[in-house]
Amino acid sequence: MTQMQPSAGAAARRIEHARQAEARKLSRRSFLRVSVFAGLTLSVGAMAAGFLGFFNLRKPTGFGGVITVVPARVPKAGEEPSRISEGKFWLSNLAGAQGDVAGVGGTGGILALYWKCPHLGCTVPWNPAFNGAAVNFPGIVGWFRCPCHGSTYSRAGIRVYGPAPRPMDTMAVSVNSDKSLNVNTGVITSGGPDNPLRAKPYSG
C-alpha cells in the first residue's frame, strides 16, 4: 500500500494536468456557437452596410446627372429633333405651336424628351418621314414612333395614339448665357398634355 501512494499522486496530477489542458482548449460547442454568431453578424452587417450605402448619394455624370449640350448640337427652331445619346433624350426645338397637337397653347422653345417610352420602356426613335397620322393631323410629317408597340408622339411628345398611358416624359432644361443647354437628366417629369408649355424659349 505504501508503494501505491506516490503512483496515485502522480496519476492524480496527470489527470489534473489533462483536465486543465482540456479546459484551455476550445470546446466544439463554443466553437460552433461563436462561428454561427460571427457569421450572422457578418451577413447582417453586410446587408445593413449595403442598405446604408444607398443613402450616400453620389454625383452621377452622364445619364442621371446634368448634361451640357453645346449650341452646335441644338436644333434650329422647327428642325428635326436631335438625339443626345449620353443623356438618353431627344432635344426638340419647337417653332411656335409646333407639336402642340392637343391645342394647349404652346408657344415654342426647347424641350428635352426622355426617350424611354412611358408604355413599356422601349427607346423611342424619331421618324422624320411618317405621316400616317394624316387623317386627324393633316400636314404634320415627322413623329416619334415606338418600335415595340407603335405609340405615336408629336414633336412635343404628345401621345396621339397607341397604348402608351401618357405623353413622353420631359427633363429639366436651362439655357446658359453662351446658348448652350444644361439638361438635368436626373429630374424627369411625367409627360402630360402640357408638354408644349414646358418648352424653354431659345434663340440660337
Binding site: S85, K88, W115, L120, C122, T123, P125, P147, C148, H149, G150, G162, P163
Partner: peptide, 23 residues
C-alpha cells in the same frame, strides 16, 4: 439598350400577345 431595332419584336410565338399590347 439604347439601340433598339425597329420594329422590335418578340419571338414569333409571342407576337400574338405583342399584337394585343398594341391595342
Amino acid at each position: 439598350a439604347d439601340v433598339t431595332p425597329n420594329p422590335s419584336k418578340a419571338p414569333w410565338y409571342l407576337l400574338n400577345l405583342q399584337e394585343l399590347l398594341l391595342h
